[in-house]
């Protein structure tokens, strides 16, 4: 179904031959790929993820302003470091979302994932503080998104 919406979005034409072709193609692709992914997303989860996105965008703006200040500074005051982040997330999709958010935020990049332990390369002490420090804001929000899904990790 989602694939059919995607087809309509990409072709952007509403003649019936295009619609029928898109319906057939999306059914074939969905039938081939059925049973590969054990995770079936629920609609209320999608709503929560959409509500999470503006906060993530605020975080991106904040840290990218910090990072451009670091880059444009004449003395280049960077202190790159590897840190290990031990999270308490217990769901595959939650860990994927967490790592993706970390990498999307400028200044921190996920380097290695093993179950729920992530190795993060951070550019600065202050940028890494959000993840490994006392606050753990992002992890709390993601755990809140996945609070009523049974753990599978």
């Amino acid at each position: 179904m989602a694939l059919f919406v995607f087809w309509v979005l990409l072709s952007a034409s509403f003649e019936w031959i295009h619609l029928c072709l898109g319906l057939v193609c999306s059914f074939i692709v969905a039938w081939i790929n059925s049973g590969h992914s054990p995770f079936v997303p629920k609609s209320r989860l999608a709503v929560r993820v959409l509500l999470y996105l503006p906060w993530l965008f605020y975080k991106i703006v904040q840290s990218s302003l910090h990072l451009s200040k670091l880059i444009l500074h004449p003395a280049l005051p960077i202190a790159p470091q590897l840190m290990t982040v031990e999270s308490r997330l217990n769901h595959h999709a939650a860990v994927v979302l967490f790592g993706n958010s970390i990498t999307l935020t400028p200044g921190t990049i996920t380097a290695e994932v093993d179950r729920n332990t992530l190795i993060v390369h951070a550019m600065d002490q202050e940028l890494g503080e959000d993840l490994a420090g006392g606050k753990k804001e992002m992890e709390t929000k993601i755990a809140d998104i996945f609070r009523d899904v049974e753990p599978d990790l």
């Binding site: 991106i60 990072l67 880059i71 960077i78 790159p80 990498t103 400028p106 990049i109 390369h121 550019m123």
Partner: peptide, 21 residues
């Protein structure tokens, strides 16, 4: 940043700054 920063890990931060914002 891609020109100035010293190694791969730091340069990748600069590239991700491009992509995201």
């Amino acid at each position: 940043g891609v020109i100035r920063l010293p190694d791969v890990f730091c340069r990748s931060h600069a590239v991700s700054l491009t992509d995201s914002l």
